[in-house]
Protein backbone atom coordinates (compact mmCIF):
# COMPACT_ATOMS: atom_id res chain seq x y z
CA UNK A 1 0.00 0.00 0.00
CA UNK A 2 0.81 3.40 0.28
CA UNK A 3 2.92 4.27 1.44
CA UNK A 4 3.28 7.35 1.98
CA UNK A 5 4.68 7.41 4.96
CA UNK A 6 6.95 8.44 3.15
CA UNK A 7 6.95 10.55 4.27
CA UNK A 8 3.51 9.59 3.08
CA UNK A 9 0.34 9.43 4.82
CA UNK A 10 0.30 6.50 7.11
CA UNK A 11 -3.13 7.60 8.11
CA UNK A 12 -4.53 6.45 4.87
CA UNK A 13 -5.95 3.07 5.62
CA UNK A 14 -4.17 -0.04 4.48
CA UNK A 15 -6.24 -1.45 1.71
CA UNK A 16 -6.43 -4.88 3.31
CA UNK A 17 -7.65 -3.41 6.53
CA UNK A 18 -10.40 -1.31 5.04
CA UNK A 19 -11.81 -3.89 2.77
CA UNK A 20 -13.27 -6.34 5.26
CA UNK A 21 -15.02 -3.39 6.82
CA UNK A 22 -16.27 -2.26 3.45
CA UNK A 23 -17.34 -5.68 2.34
CA UNK A 24 -19.15 -6.15 5.59
CA UNK A 25 -20.54 -2.69 5.17
CA UNK A 26 -22.11 -3.71 1.92
CA UNK A 27 -25.30 -4.66 3.69
CA UNK A 28 -25.15 -1.49 5.68
CA UNK A 29 -24.23 0.72 2.77
CA UNK A 30 -27.62 0.99 1.09
CA UNK A 31 -29.70 1.65 4.20
CA UNK A 32 -27.02 4.12 5.29
CA UNK A 33 -27.85 6.37 2.41
CA UNK A 34 -31.30 6.73 3.91
CA UNK A 35 -30.12 7.02 7.47
CA UNK A 36 -27.89 9.88 6.43
CA UNK A 37 -24.19 9.12 6.19
CA UNK A 38 -23.59 12.81 6.09
CA UNK A 39 -25.40 13.58 9.33
CA UNK A 40 -23.55 10.82 11.14
CA UNK A 41 -20.30 11.98 9.62
CA UNK A 42 -20.82 15.51 10.88
CA UNK A 43 -21.28 14.31 14.44
CA UNK A 44 -17.53 13.92 14.77
CA UNK A 45 -15.63 17.19 15.21
CA UNK A 46 -12.58 15.99 13.30
CA UNK A 47 -14.69 14.99 10.31
CA UNK A 48 -16.36 18.40 10.47
CA UNK A 49 -12.98 20.11 10.26
CA UNK A 50 -12.04 17.84 7.36
CA UNK A 51 -15.25 18.66 5.56
CA UNK A 52 -14.74 22.41 5.98
CA UNK A 53 -11.13 22.18 4.75
CA UNK A 54 -12.10 20.18 1.69
CA UNK A 55 -14.99 22.51 0.84
CA UNK A 56 -12.74 25.56 1.18
CA UNK A 57 -10.16 23.90 -1.03
CA UNK A 58 -12.67 23.00 -3.73
CA UNK A 59 -14.04 26.55 -3.60
CA UNK A 60 -10.52 27.93 -3.94
CA UNK A 61 -9.91 25.72 -6.94
CA UNK A 62 -13.20 26.54 -8.66
CA UNK A 63 -13.22 30.25 -7.90
CA UNK A 64 -9.46 30.83 -8.32
CA UNK A 65 -9.86 33.29 -11.23
CA UNK A 66 -12.38 35.34 -9.24
CA UNK A 67 -10.58 35.25 -5.90
CA UNK A 68 -7.02 35.75 -7.04
CA UNK A 69 -5.95 39.40 -6.79
CA UNK A 70 -3.25 38.89 -9.45
CA UNK A 71 -2.44 36.64 -12.38
CA UNK A 72 -0.53 33.55 -11.11
CA UNK A 73 2.21 34.03 -13.70
CA UNK A 74 2.26 37.83 -13.86
CA UNK A 75 5.43 39.53 -12.67
CA UNK A 76 3.68 42.44 -11.03
CA UNK A 77 5.40 42.99 -7.69
CA UNK A 78 8.87 43.50 -6.31
CA UNK A 79 10.82 40.30 -5.70
CA UNK A 80 10.69 38.61 -2.27
CA UNK A 81 8.14 41.04 -0.85
CA UNK A 82 6.89 40.04 2.58
CA UNK A 83 3.14 39.57 3.05
CA UNK A 84 1.21 42.82 2.73
CA UNK A 85 -2.34 43.98 1.87
CA UNK A 86 -1.75 43.88 -1.87
CA UNK A 87 0.16 40.58 -1.66
CA UNK A 88 -1.35 38.67 1.30
CA UNK A 89 1.25 35.85 1.11
CA UNK A 90 4.07 38.03 -0.30
CA UNK A 91 5.79 37.63 -3.66
CA UNK A 92 8.43 35.26 -5.03
CA UNK A 93 11.78 35.89 -6.68
CA UNK A 94 10.20 37.12 -9.90
CA UNK A 95 7.60 39.22 -8.12
CA UNK A 96 4.67 36.87 -8.68
CA UNK A 97 1.86 37.02 -6.15
CA UNK A 98 2.09 33.94 -3.91
CA UNK A 99 -1.54 34.02 -2.78
CA UNK A 100 -2.81 33.90 -6.37
CA UNK A 101 -0.36 31.13 -7.21
CA UNK A 102 -1.57 29.05 -4.29
CA UNK A 103 -5.21 29.52 -5.29
CA UNK A 104 -4.45 28.33 -8.81
CA UNK A 105 -2.27 25.58 -7.35
CA UNK A 106 -5.39 24.14 -5.70
CA UNK A 107 -6.72 23.41 -9.20
CA UNK A 108 -3.57 21.52 -10.14
CA UNK A 109 -3.30 19.51 -6.93
CA UNK A 110 -6.97 18.59 -6.73
CA UNK A 111 -7.27 18.07 -10.47
CA UNK A 112 -4.22 15.84 -10.74
CA UNK A 113 -5.24 13.83 -7.70
CA UNK A 114 -8.77 13.47 -9.04
CA UNK A 115 -7.71 12.30 -12.51
CA UNK A 116 -5.04 10.03 -11.06
CA UNK A 117 -7.61 8.35 -8.83
CA UNK A 118 -10.01 8.08 -11.79
CA UNK A 119 -7.30 6.34 -13.82
CA UNK A 120 -6.39 4.09 -10.89
CA UNK A 121 -10.00 3.11 -10.26
CA UNK A 122 -10.60 2.45 -13.92
CA UNK A 123 -7.51 0.28 -14.39
CA UNK A 124 -8.13 -1.56 -11.14
CA UNK A 125 -11.78 -2.30 -11.88
CA UNK A 126 -10.92 -3.54 -15.35
CA UNK A 127 -8.00 -5.75 -14.36
CA UNK A 128 -9.44 -6.85 -11.03
CA UNK A 129 -12.83 -7.83 -12.38
CA UNK A 130 -11.51 -9.63 -15.44
CA UNK A 131 -8.96 -11.65 -13.46
CA UNK A 132 -11.37 -12.35 -10.62
CA UNK A 133 -14.11 -13.40 -13.00
CA UNK A 134 -12.04 -15.48 -15.40
CA UNK A 135 -9.58 -17.01 -12.94
CA UNK A 136 -7.13 -19.51 -14.41
CA UNK A 137 -3.82 -18.67 -16.03
CA UNK A 138 -4.61 -15.01 -16.75
CA UNK A 139 -5.45 -14.56 -13.11
CA UNK A 140 -2.23 -16.19 -11.83
CA UNK A 141 0.01 -14.21 -14.15
CA UNK A 142 -1.61 -10.86 -13.45
CA UNK A 143 -1.62 -11.50 -9.72
CA UNK A 144 2.14 -12.23 -9.78
CA UNK A 145 2.62 -8.87 -11.52
CA UNK A 146 0.54 -7.29 -8.76
CA UNK A 147 2.60 -9.03 -6.05
CA UNK A 148 5.79 -7.78 -7.65
CA UNK A 149 4.70 -4.16 -7.73
CA UNK A 150 3.29 -4.42 -4.22
CA UNK A 151 6.70 -5.63 -3.02
CA UNK A 152 7.84 -2.00 -3.24
CA UNK A 153 6.61 0.97 -1.26
CA UNK A 154 4.40 2.74 -3.83
CA UNK A 155 6.06 6.12 -3.51
CA UNK A 156 9.51 4.71 -4.14
CA UNK A 157 8.45 3.03 -7.36
CA UNK A 158 6.49 6.09 -8.47
CA UNK A 159 9.64 8.19 -8.03
CA UNK A 160 11.64 5.83 -10.25
CA UNK A 161 8.93 5.59 -12.92
CA UNK A 162 8.32 9.35 -12.99
CA UNK A 163 12.08 9.86 -13.29
CA UNK A 164 12.18 7.95 -16.56
CA UNK A 165 10.04 10.48 -18.38
CA UNK A 166 10.40 14.13 -19.19
CA UNK A 167 9.01 15.65 -15.99
CA UNK A 168 5.51 17.12 -16.23
CA UNK A 169 2.24 16.87 -14.36
CA UNK A 170 1.04 14.35 -16.95
CA UNK A 171 3.99 12.01 -16.60
CA UNK A 172 3.68 12.37 -12.83
CA UNK A 173 0.02 11.37 -12.98
CA UNK A 174 0.74 8.37 -15.18
CA UNK A 175 3.62 7.30 -12.94
CA UNK A 176 1.39 7.42 -9.87
CA UNK A 177 -1.43 5.57 -11.59
CA UNK A 178 0.92 2.90 -12.97
CA UNK A 179 2.00 2.03 -9.45
CA UNK A 180 -1.11 2.71 -7.39
CA UNK A 181 -3.65 0.63 -9.38
CA UNK A 182 -2.24 -2.69 -8.20
CA UNK A 183 -3.46 -2.55 -4.61
CA UNK A 184 -6.93 -1.60 -5.78
CA UNK A 185 -6.94 -4.32 -8.44
CA UNK A 186 -6.28 -6.92 -5.78
CA UNK A 187 -9.19 -5.57 -3.74
CA UNK A 188 -11.53 -5.52 -6.74
CA UNK A 189 -10.54 -9.09 -7.52
CA UNK A 190 -11.31 -10.14 -3.95
CA UNK A 191 -14.70 -8.46 -4.09
CA UNK A 192 -15.51 -10.06 -7.46
CA UNK A 193 -14.54 -13.48 -6.12
CA UNK A 194 -16.91 -12.97 -3.19
CA UNK A 195 -19.81 -11.64 -5.26
CA UNK A 196 -19.37 -14.34 -7.92
CA UNK A 197 -20.50 -16.98 -5.47
CA UNK A 198 -23.67 -15.19 -4.48
CA UNK A 199 -27.03 -16.66 -5.38
CA UNK A 200 -28.18 -13.92 -7.70
CA UNK A 201 -25.14 -14.56 -9.89
CA UNK A 202 -25.87 -18.27 -10.00
CA UNK A 203 -29.46 -17.41 -10.85
CA UNK A 204 -28.37 -15.20 -13.73
CA UNK A 205 -26.11 -17.95 -14.98
CA UNK A 206 -28.85 -20.55 -14.78
CA UNK A 207 -31.14 -18.16 -16.65
CA UNK A 208 -28.59 -18.32 -19.46
CA UNK A 209 -26.96 -14.89 -19.17
CA UNK A 210 -23.72 -14.36 -21.06
CA UNK A 211 -20.58 -14.00 -18.93
CA UNK A 212 -19.86 -10.44 -19.98
CA UNK A 213 -23.42 -9.45 -19.15
CA UNK A 214 -23.28 -11.12 -15.76
CA UNK A 215 -20.04 -9.34 -14.99
CA UNK A 216 -21.29 -5.93 -16.04
CA UNK A 217 -24.91 -6.10 -14.89
CA UNK A 218 -24.69 -8.18 -11.76
CA UNK A 219 -21.18 -8.19 -10.37
CA UNK A 220 -19.76 -4.74 -11.05
CA UNK A 221 -22.64 -2.79 -9.45
CA UNK A 222 -21.82 -4.60 -6.22
CA UNK A 223 -18.10 -4.01 -6.49
CA UNK A 224 -18.00 -0.35 -7.46
CA UNK A 225 -19.32 1.39 -4.33
CA UNK A 226 -16.64 0.11 -1.93
CA UNK A 227 -13.92 0.82 -4.50
CA UNK A 228 -15.12 4.38 -4.96
CA UNK A 229 -15.18 4.87 -1.20
CA UNK A 230 -11.65 3.53 -1.00
CA UNK A 231 -10.47 5.88 -3.75
CA UNK A 232 -11.97 8.78 -1.84
CA UNK A 233 -10.19 7.71 1.33
CA UNK A 234 -6.88 7.85 -0.48
CA UNK A 235 -7.17 11.34 -1.98
CA UNK A 236 -4.99 12.75 0.80
CA UNK A 237 -2.25 10.22 0.09
CA UNK A 238 -2.35 11.03 -3.60
CA UNK A 239 -2.14 14.77 -3.02
CA UNK A 240 0.86 14.16 -0.77
CA UNK A 241 2.54 11.96 -3.37
CA UNK A 242 1.90 14.49 -6.15
CA UNK A 243 3.46 17.32 -4.20
CA UNK A 244 6.35 15.11 -3.07
CA UNK A 245 7.27 14.17 -6.64
CA UNK A 246 6.90 17.73 -7.85
CA UNK A 247 9.07 18.85 -4.95
CA UNK A 248 11.75 16.41 -6.13
CA UNK A 249 11.60 17.97 -9.59
CA UNK A 250 9.86 14.94 -11.12
CA UNK A 251 6.47 16.54 -11.73
CA UNK A 252 5.17 20.01 -12.45
CA UNK A 253 7.92 22.34 -13.67
CA UNK A 254 8.32 26.06 -13.05
CA UNK A 255 6.57 28.36 -13.63
CA UNK A 256 3.58 26.07 -12.99
CA UNK A 257 1.99 27.14 -9.69
CA UNK A 258 1.87 23.59 -8.32
CA UNK A 259 2.41 23.52 -4.55
CA UNK A 260 5.22 20.97 -4.52
CA UNK A 261 7.00 22.72 -7.37
CA UNK A 262 6.61 26.02 -5.50
CA UNK A 263 8.26 24.47 -2.45
CA UNK A 264 11.10 23.33 -4.67
CA UNK A 265 11.52 26.82 -6.10
CA UNK A 266 11.32 28.35 -2.64
CA UNK A 267 13.91 26.12 -1.01
CA UNK A 268 16.82 28.02 -2.56
CA UNK A 269 15.68 31.20 -0.85
CA UNK A 270 14.31 29.58 2.27
CA UNK A 271 16.57 31.30 4.75
CA UNK A 272 16.10 34.79 3.34
CA UNK A 273 12.42 34.47 2.33
CA UNK A 274 10.80 31.66 4.35
CA UNK A 275 7.29 32.70 3.27
CA UNK A 276 8.04 31.16 -0.13
CA UNK A 277 7.94 27.73 1.50
CA UNK A 278 5.65 28.43 4.43
CA UNK A 279 2.48 29.09 2.43
CA UNK A 280 2.71 26.28 -0.14
CA UNK A 281 3.66 23.92 2.71
CA UNK A 282 0.63 25.00 4.72
CA UNK A 283 -1.59 24.60 1.67
CA UNK A 284 -0.43 21.01 1.12
CA UNK A 285 -0.81 20.24 4.82
CA UNK A 286 -4.33 21.66 4.91
CA UNK A 287 -5.38 19.70 1.83
CA UNK A 288 -3.96 16.41 3.04
CA UNK A 289 -5.31 16.95 6.55
CA UNK A 290 -8.76 17.76 5.19
CA UNK A 291 -9.01 14.63 3.07
CA UNK A 292 -7.51 12.43 5.79
CA UNK A 293 -9.95 13.71 8.42
CA UNK A 294 -12.89 13.27 6.08
CA UNK A 295 -11.66 9.81 5.08
CA UNK A 296 -11.17 8.72 8.69
CA UNK A 297 -14.65 9.90 9.57
CA UNK A 298 -16.16 8.17 6.57
CA UNK A 299 -14.40 4.94 7.47
CA UNK A 300 -15.74 5.08 11.01
CA UNK A 301 -19.28 5.72 9.82
CA UNK A 302 -19.15 2.89 7.27
CA UNK A 303 -17.57 0.42 9.67
CA UNK A 304 -20.34 -1.96 10.69
CA UNK A 305 -18.66 -2.44 14.07
CA UNK A 306 -19.43 1.12 15.10
Amino acid sequence: MTDIQLIGSPMAPEAEEVVPALVGAERVLQPLARRGVFRRLMRDWTARIGFVLVVLLVLAAVLAPLLAPHEPLALDGGSFESPSWSHPFGTDRLGRDLFSRILFGARLSLGTAFFASLLITFAAVFVGSVTGFLGGAVDSVVMRVVDTILAFPSLLLAIVVAGLFKPSLWSLMLALASVWWVGYARIVRGLVLAVRERQFVTAARVAGGRSSRILIRHILPNVLPPVIVLATLEMGTLILAISALSFLGLGAQPPTPEWGAMLNEGKNHFFSAPHLMLFPGLAISAAVLGFNLLGDGLRDVLDPKS
Partner: peptide, 21 residues
Protein backbone atom coordinates in the same frame (compact mmCIF):
# COMPACT_ATOMS: atom_id res chain seq x y z
CA UNK B 1 -5.09 12.24 18.23
CA UNK B 2 -4.39 15.74 16.97
CA UNK B 3 -0.64 15.12 17.06
CA UNK B 4 -1.04 11.89 15.11
CA UNK B 5 -3.27 13.54 12.52
CA UNK B 6 -0.82 16.36 12.00
CA UNK B 7 2.11 13.95 11.86
CA UNK B 8 0.39 12.02 9.12
CA UNK B 9 -0.78 14.99 7.09
CA UNK B 10 1.97 17.57 7.20
CA UNK B 11 4.44 16.53 4.50
CA UNK B 12 7.88 15.56 5.77
CA UNK B 13 9.54 17.65 3.10
CA UNK B 14 7.82 20.70 4.60
CA UNK B 15 8.56 19.79 8.22
CA UNK B 16 12.20 19.32 7.28
CA UNK B 17 12.54 22.97 6.35
CA UNK B 18 10.60 24.15 9.40
CA UNK B 19 13.01 22.17 11.60
CA UNK B 20 16.00 23.54 9.72
CA UNK B 21 14.72 27.06 10.11
Amino acid sequence: RVAALLGASVPGFFVAYLLMF
